[in-house]
Each structure stands twice: as C-alpha cells, then as structure tokens.
Simulated assay, not measured.
Amino acid sequence: MALAQRLTAKAGDKLDLLLMREAGLGPDHLTRVMDANPGLVDLGPILPLGTVVIVPATSAIAGAPATRAVIQLWD
C-alpha cells in the first residue's frame, strides 16, 4: 500500500512546478492534489515558502515509473 507524499514549497514555487520537480507529476494531477488540500488555491499562484502539499496515493501512480515516449526524427 502506497502512502501519500508530503511536498514542501520552496521560494517562488507554483503548484505545477512543485509537483513536477518533487513527484514527477504533470498537469493532469493538479485537480486531484488541489482536492486533497483544501484552501491551497486561496494561497495564490505562488505558494508561500514552506507550504506543505499532500499528494494522495493512487494505484495508478504508486509504483509506476515515469516514462516518456521516444520520438525518433531519423531512421
């Protein structure tokens, strides 16, 4: 069973940057994270230094390695 992650904002962090840097999550996870953190949206676009953001665990994310499609320009 996977546990929720606790991320801490650094100076000048926006939520999407924090999620990408610390958890490897993209924009499709923003709504789920905002739902798990009531009042987070009220803090504004730049999170105050030290803001703790909870990233809830899901079976789709837990244990799944981050992958990217390979784009080959030439044969």
Score class of each variant (00 low, 15 high):
1 M>G: 15
2 A>Y: 10
3 L>Q: 12
4 A>W: 03
5 Q>T: 01
6 R>W: 01
7 L>V: 08
8 T>K: 13
8 T>A: 09
8 T>M: 08
9 A>T: 05
9 A>K: 08
10 K>T: 07
12 G>E: 12
12 G>V: 01
13 D>S: 01
15 L>D: 02
15 L>Y: 08
15 L>N: 06
18 L>C: 03
18 L>D: 01
18 L>R: 05
20 M>T: 01
20 M>I: 00
21 R>C: 00
21 R>D: 12
22 E>C: 06
22 E>G: 00
23 A>G: 04
23 A>Y: 01
24 G>N: 07
25 L>R: 08
26 G>D: 14
27 P>G: 01
28 D>N: 12
29 H>Q: 14
29 H>P: 00
30 L>G: 04
30 L>E: 07
31 T>V: 12
31 T>P: 00
32 R>I: 01
32 R>W: 06
32 R>L: 14
33 V>Q: 03
33 V>S: 02
33 V>M: 02
34 M>H: 12
35 D>N: 15
36 A>W: 07
36 A>T: 05
37 N>M: 04
37 N>P: 02
38 P>N: 04
38 P>I: 01
38 P>S: 05
38 P>F: 11
38 P>M: 02
39 G>P: 06
43 L>S: 04
44 G>W: 10
44 G>S: 08
45 P>D: 15
45 P>R: 13
46 I>S: 07
47 L>S: 05
47 L>C: 07
47 L>V: 08
48 P>Y: 08
48 P>T: 04
49 L>D: 13
49 L>Q: 15
50 G>N: 13
50 G>S: 08
50 G>V: 03
50 G>M: 09
53 V>G: 04
53 V>F: 10
54 I>M: 13
54 I>T: 15
57 A>V: 01
57 A>Y: 05
58 T>M: 09
59 S>Q: 13
59 S>N: 12
59 S>M: 10
60 A>N: 02
64 A>C: 07
64 A>D: 01
65 P>N: 08
66 A>V: 14
66 A>G: 03
67 T>P: 00
68 R>G: 09
68 R>K: 12
68 R>H: 11
69 A>R: 15
69 A>S: 12
70 V>P: 00
71 I>S: 09
71 I>E: 10
73 L>N: 14
74 W>V: 13
74 W>K: 15
75 D>S: 13
